[in-house]
């Protein structure tokens, strides 16, 4: 049994220690934010934040997470009270199908934690691991700029 610390709460998880975090978040903890996109660490749809760092939850077995803080999209806010980054994405209408967006928000969240005033270049470089097929990129950039307090 492994204890996962997710969005401020401890969860005891049974099962294979090799299970990637993504499946435990989605199926055992019923958190929908992290999505399966590739399972290969190529698209970022499954991005969550572990101890302030963005990680691909599809590639990280739960066995390595004991004692570490996991933050998912659900940890940033709710539909009634969205967090600042979620608000900025909503304001920018930064979603088409929206499948990639939770991962985008989580990666951006980690960026703003370490650099409250990223340049455009910083943002692009940081967001590079995450794919969007709908071409929402310009709006995603806008939303992150807005959340960083920069007028877009």
């Amino acid at each position: 049994m492994i204890t996962l610390h997710v969005n401020g709460q401890d969860h005891a998880v049974e099962g294979d220690p090799a299970t990637p975090l993504l499946y435990v978040l989605r199926n055992d903890l019923r958190l929908n934010g992290a999505k399966f996109g590739c399972g290969l660490g190529q698209c970022g749809a499954c991005t969550v934040v572990v101890d302030d760092e963005p990680i691909f939850s599809c590639q990280v077995p739960i066995s390595v997470l004991a004692g570490r803080r996991v933050t998912t999209l659900e940890g940033l806010g709710t539909e009634k009270e969205p967090g600042p980054l979620q608000k900025a994405f909503i304001a920018a209408q930064a979603a088409q199908c929206g499948y990639c967006i939770p991962g985008m928000i989580m990666r951006a969240h980690a960026l703003l934690k370490r650099n409250a005033t990223p340049s455009d270049d910083d943002i692009r470089r940081w967001m590079q691991p995450n794919l969007c097929r709908c071409g929402t990129h310009p709006r995603i950039l806008d939303a992150i700029r807005t959340a960083a307090g920069r007028v877009s």
């Binding site: 929908n32 659900e74 806010g77 539909e79 969205p82 979620q86 909503i90 209408q93 929206g98 939770p102």
Partner: peptide
């Protein structure tokens, strides 16, 4: 958009 951005079960997935 708001449900998609806050983790509501929107998708068939």
């Amino acid at each position: 958009i708001p449900p998609k951005l806050t983790g509501a079960p929107v998708f068939v997935q």
